[in-house]
Amino acid sequence: MERAGIGNEYQDIRDAAVREEQLSVIEVTDRVMARVRGTEQKRSPRGIRFAGKTAAFTGMLVMLLLITVTAYAASEYIQIRNKAGEVKVQHRAENPNPGAAAPYYEYLWKLMDFAKPGELIAYFNRGEKLPEGAEPALQFTSKELRLTDYPAFLGEMNKLKTPVLPKEAGGYEFKYGTIHPGSPLAAERDGNPLYRQTLDELLAEAKQDTGRNLFMKAIPWTEAASIGGKYTREGAVIEIGATLLHGGNVQVMLRPEVAAEKLEVEGREIVYNHANKPEVRPDISYHYLNWYSEQQDAYYIVTTYGDRKLTKEQLLDLAGELIRGGL
């Protein structure tokens, strides 16, 4: 990948990025070659693999297309309710005009620079434009904690009383786990003097320092907002994510190319999402699963990508394994 000089035409853009020499040097030859050797041993001739299955395959495809068309018509109305009948998961069509980026984005980087992994940050931004009628308040953001050691991840999950993601899933090995600290609920903010004290501190700081608008502080937290696990087998990856609802509910914005259908695995309602609409987006194809666990009040997502993707059936088998394992 040789370089061809293009002069100073883009110098201002290049200057706004880290320089090439600041990117670390990597050495992955051994890891890649180990996978290459493994790939070679498992490779099977494609022609033989599909021989004799064409008719059945075509039939399945027709069936799938029928199901997909039917499912898509109703996909934006998919709901999952709890035993009390409350809607916990609601599918909606994606808003095609989401509007301008939230002002939050503009100073997120400062907060992320300040935060250490696994910290909850309380902040006050003096310069933020608020919606009409809204009162300024202490705001919160958090930085993901990523753990590559499973016992350490398990320890954190147990300490936080979150669902426990497994060490292995469908024959895929744990690569790392993530935890996002949760922000306090309104009742906690009102009832716990920590938050009033923190805002008072930040306001006092703001009064002293008129040279900036953003004031922030790391504060203790006890509940996770979400956890996730990445699992790999050679170059194939699955990811399991759990969003902890803490009594809330979820709205799922469906992209136009995604069709969703509700299925049942191990007695649990599962939503199978399939993005494969050449007429909408010819360049993409992916699928993933969601479900809601009432016992844990958690909303799950399972994705598959990499060298090999799980098939729909394999994804559903994996969901069964995870649900039987307590998710």
């Binding site: 990025a17 880290v18 984005y105 997120l108 969003t243 609802l245 009594g247 809330g248 709205q251 997502i301």
Partner: peptide
Amino acid sequence: FLRVFRPDTAAAAGPEQTLEERLYSP
């Protein structure tokens, strides 16, 4: 494309964007 509504607030709290290792200016 996932918005979580917690019981006390209408504020959307999607997964955070991770910018731990900033490669670009804000």
